[in-house]
Amino acid sequence: MPHTAPHYLHRLPNLPLSNAWEEITASDMVEVELLGKVAAGLPIEACPDQASVLIPSRMVRRNTYALKVCGDSMIDCNIFDGDVIIIERQESAENGETAVVLINNQEVTLKKLYIEKSGVRLQPANETMAPIFLKNDDIQVLGLVMGVVRQPAQAA
């Protein structure tokens, strides 16, 4: 069976995430840490792995790492189960940004973050899934999505 190369999607600035992606070619590759899995669905326990992934150097910023996506809650932002997302480590997010969020110091999830009067709403990008409502003190932003590495579907 022929092996096909992964697709690299780089985030374009100042656009909604659902259509902010530009496919880039695999040249000048750099290794970044693959720190584990992130839930795109129900939050999962934070359990770091120690691995790495090769990505194009233009997807790397100052403090870049990767996480493997588990679940379908971000499909309307073109992020699918099994994708590897490229994250820029940051401790804050703008309203509506897609962020990796630590909940109660134990669970990690990928959602759109909205700051509301009563606290924080973590909104999936999948109309079949409900948002998660939390107090500001219950969450910590770990980073923002800057890119996606998608393995091509394997032929059966």
Rank of each mutant, 00 (worst) to 15 (best):
A99L: 02
N136I: 15
P48M: 13
N14V: 08
L34P: 02
V149R: 09
V32H: 07
P56H: 03
P6N: 02
E116L: 08
V69Y: 02
D81Q: 01
Q50I: 14
I55H: 05
A46K: 13
A155H: 14
S92E: 15
G71Y: 05
E97V: 03
T64G: 00
Q151K: 04
P16F: 07
D83R: 01
A40V: 01
V120I: 05
N136D: 15
K117N: 14
I139C: 01
V148I: 00
K68P: 02
A51E: 10
V108C: 06
I44T: 09
P131L: 08
V100A: 09
V53E: 09
E45D: 12
T109C: 05
A155N: 13
D76C: 07
A93G: 05
P43L: 08
S92D: 15
T64I: 06
L9Y: 07
P131M: 06
S57M: 11
D138K: 13
E91D: 11
T128V: 12
P56Y: 00
K37V: 11
R11N: 01
D28W: 10
C47D: 15
K135F: 11
L144F: 01
I24F: 00
I132F: 07
Y65W: 07
E45R: 12
S52A: 07
P124T: 01
A66C: 01
G41C: 05
S92T: 08
N95I: 04
M29A: 03
A153L: 15
M74L: 08
A93F: 05
Q50F: 14
R89F: 09
G147D: 07
V69T: 06
D72T: 15
M59C: 09
H7L: 12
D49M: 13
D137H: 11
E127P: 15
E31V: 02
K135C: 05
P131Y: 05
D76G: 08
S92M: 10
C47G: 13
R121D: 08
E127C: 14
M1W: 12
M29R: 00
E88G: 06
L142V: 00
K112F: 10
A153W: 13
K68N: 02
G36L: 04
A153K: 13
T98N: 05
P6L: 10
P43S: 09
N105R: 12
A155D: 11
L15E: 06
P48H: 14
K37G: 09
S92H: 13
V149T: 06
D81N: 09
V32D: 01
L122E: 06
T4C: 12
A153G: 12
D83N: 03
A153H: 12
V108T: 03
V84M: 04
E88C: 04
L113V: 08
I24E: 02
L142H: 03
M1I: 11
E33G: 11
L122V: 05
L102P: 03
I103H: 08
K135I: 07
L67D: 07
Y8D: 08
K135S: 11
Y114F: 13
T64L: 02
A130Y: 11
G147F: 00
D72Q: 10
D49I: 14
A66G: 01
V84S: 05
